Amino acid sequence: MKKTPYSWDASLIVGINLLIIIVLIGLLAPWISPHDPLKVNLSNRFVFPSWTYPFGTDHLGRCILSRIIYGIRISVAFAFLIMIVTFIISLPIGLITGYWRARANHFFMRLIDGTLAIPDIVLTIAIVGMLGPGFLNMMIAIILVRWASYVRFIRSLVLKICEEDYILSARMSGNTHARIMRRYILPVTFSPLVIFGALDMGKIVLLMAGLSFLGLGAQPPTPEWGAMLRDATAYFQIAPHMMVFPGVAILLFVLACQLISDRFKKLNAADLKEV
């Protein structure tokens, strides 16, 4: 397998550096956060950005900067957890449906087509509406929505790999199907899948923020970005900073994922041609 030449460009460097900075800020939240994100101080309501409160305060006098910093922990950590669970569910299904083209394959593909035919946010809202609002139900809903994209991606990789000559040689050598998938197919699909999942975190964070904004995800007083936007809607005219800064935080995280994604999509396409 010929290795694809790797070259750095401005968008990739900016995206990686921005993502690293955001993650580091979240990890160092207890040490760099200027105030307690949950502390209520009604005497400091709607304070505009200042030296004491760099991003101002909200309707309960809580430091917006501190809540955004701790919100990184919630959004990124739970997005990573959702990605891992989706990965565990989708990997065996994608491998089996791509390797064995039997009736089960048709069943899963029709199920995937039906899932992907509905916009993610609409289907997620419908599932959370049935399960009830809450962070756990929101995570379950996102997993039930995002698994189809992972399975389709894995299946497309496996179908491409199974056409290669070395897979035919492995079959003729007497290797079992399980051994072929474990030794010859899984290692090739693992790297693109990890990249796909890591870059999918931007979409997951956006879904989480959207659901929390609608009141279906994180509930008060959790310092989650979407929940902060929901709290800010009633006070936007008198305290616009309550909405601006959480919105910018979401924008920067999604932008970092997108900048990296654009570059790695090209690399993955080149890799698949040379498998």
Rank of each mutant, 00 (worst) to 15 (best):
212 S>Y: 12
213 F>L: 13
213 F>G: 06
213 F>Y: 12
213 F>I: 03
214 L>N: 14
215 G>S: 10
215 G>V: 04
216 L>H: 13
216 L>R: 10
216 L>A: 10
216 L>G: 07
216 L>D: 13
216 L>Y: 13
217 G>E: 06
218 A>D: 03
219 Q>V: 10
219 Q>S: 14
219 Q>A: 06
220 P>G: 07
220 P>F: 03
220 P>C: 07
220 P>I: 09
220 P>V: 05
221 P>T: 06
221 P>A: 09
221 P>G: 11
221 P>E: 09
222 T>S: 10
222 T>C: 13
222 T>E: 08
223 P>L: 15
224 E>N: 12
224 E>R: 07
224 E>H: 12
226 G>R: 00
226 G>L: 05
226 G>S: 03
226 G>E: 05
226 G>V: 02
227 A>P: 04
227 A>I: 01
227 A>N: 13
228 M>D: 11
228 M>G: 07
228 M>E: 06
229 L>M: 15
229 L>A: 06
230 R>K: 15
230 R>C: 06
230 R>L: 01
230 R>S: 05
230 R>W: 02
231 D>L: 00
231 D>A: 02
231 D>S: 00
232 A>Q: 11
232 A>C: 10
232 A>K: 08
232 A>D: 08
232 A>R: 02
232 A>N: 01
232 A>T: 04
233 T>W: 11
233 T>F: 10
234 A>K: 02
234 A>M: 05
235 Y>W: 08
235 Y>M: 02
236 F>P: 08
236 F>M: 11
236 F>I: 12
237 Q>W: 05
237 Q>S: 09
238 I>V: 14
238 I>D: 09
238 I>R: 14
239 A>L: 05
239 A>Q: 02
240 P>L: 15
240 P>H: 04
240 P>Y: 15
240 P>G: 09
240 P>W: 11
241 H>T: 09
242 M>C: 13
242 M>S: 00
243 M>V: 15
244 V>T: 11
244 V>W: 03
244 V>I: 14
245 F>Q: 01
245 F>P: 07
246 P>S: 06
246 P>Y: 07
246 P>N: 12
246 P>G: 02
246 P>K: 11
246 P>H: 03
246 P>M: 03
247 G>I: 02
248 V>N: 03
248 V>Q: 02
248 V>F: 10
249 A>H: 06
249 A>M: 10
249 A>R: 05
249 A>F: 09
250 I>Y: 03
250 I>C: 08
250 I>D: 06
250 I>A: 13
251 L>F: 15
251 L>H: 07
251 L>A: 15
252 L>W: 13
252 L>S: 10
252 L>P: 14
252 L>H: 12
252 L>M: 12
252 L>R: 12
252 L>D: 13
253 F>S: 06
